[in-house]
């Protein structure tokens, strides 16, 4: 326990993540003000005891919208990671375990996907399939596949030579069982780290896409879109940018800290 207590990354990272997760859960039942109700006379107010983060250009409570926006962030993040991990593990696992020309084909395809700047590819996909939470997540999920596939592949390449795999082959265990029942649990920590980084990248990318007007569509609150809207009032009411910008930064920071901490904890060299 003492070893974990020393780990500042773990404490800070999980603290931040839990605060945001808590915010998201609360936002399903309660927000201080209605998220979409406008109050034009009270627009662009400074933070006060009534509106702790102030109000936006339509007089909506920014704090409520940040709370609600965390739902979007987590939904996009979770969906992206689900898609990325599912296909990434499948592709990387098959490439690493089977090897040979299948490995070459799969991984060169992943390289090609990786060669695109992520945001450009996401823009392209969203332009084709239309904006919205689901489409954004699918686009970001596709972008997340190569990095997870690479991590998975290297893990499989390493593990498939282990003698416990040979022992299972000798018994006649089917390849898919060896891959997913025997090898996968042994590289889960690497995949968890890759997935938590993908989660952070997905949130950033969602904010960026929404900022460009292609992600989540109004009136659904999204931190990226809020940041974009705030840009127009940067001189007159700078505090408008603080809340969404801070939320994005903090959550991404928390996720990175946590993924670092998980990596350190799972690393056998640092463990024993």
């Amino acid at each position: 326990m003492r070893k974990y207590a020393k780990n500042i990354n773990l404490i800070l990272g999980s603290l931040i993540l839990f605060v945001f997760l808590g915010m998201m859960v609360v936002s399903f039942f309660y927000t201080p003000y209605d998220v979409n109700s406008m109050d034009i006379p009270n627009k662009l107010q400074e933070p006060s005891s009534k509106h702790i983060f102030g109000t936006d250009e339509f007089g909506r409570d920014i704090f409520s919208r940040i709370l609600k926006g965390s739902q979007t962030a987590f939904i996009v993040g979770a969906l992206t990671v689900t898609i990325g991990v599912f296909f990434g593990v499948l592709i990387g696992g098959i490439a690493g375990y089977v090897g040979g020309w299948i490995d070459e084909i799969f991984m060169r395809f992943m390289d090609a996907l990786m060669a695109f700047p992520g945001i450009i590819l996401a823009l392209m996909l969203v332009a084709v399939f239309g904006p919205g939470i689901i489409n954004t997540s699918i686009a970001l999920g596709i972008i997340a596949i190569p990095s997870i596939a690479r991590v998975t592949r290297s893990g499989f390449v390493q593990q498939k030579e282990a003698e416990y795999v040979t022992a299972s082959k000798l018994i006649g265990v089917q390849s898919y069982k060896i891959m997913f029942k025997h090898i996968l649990p042994n590289i889960s920590s690497q995949i968890i780290v890759a997935a938590s980084i993908a989660f952070a990248i997905a949130m950033l990318a969602e904010a960026a896409l929404s900022y460009l007007g292609l992600g989540v569509q109004p009136p659904d609150p999204s931190w990226g879109r809020m940041l974009k809207d705030a840009q127009a009032y940067l001189i007159a009411s700078p505090w408008y940018t603080y809340a969404p910008g801070g939320a994005i930064t903090l959550l991404v920071l928390g996720l990175y800290l946590l993924s670092n901490a998980i990596r350190d904890m799972m690393d056998p060299r640092s463990n024993s």
Binding site: E163, Y164, T166, A167, G172
Partner: peptide
Amino acid sequence: QVHRNQMQMIFQDPFGSLNPRM
């Protein structure tokens, strides 16, 4: 496999031959 069931192997490395997660 039918015949291989009659033949088994004991491995050199006692640390690598058992799946650490099982």
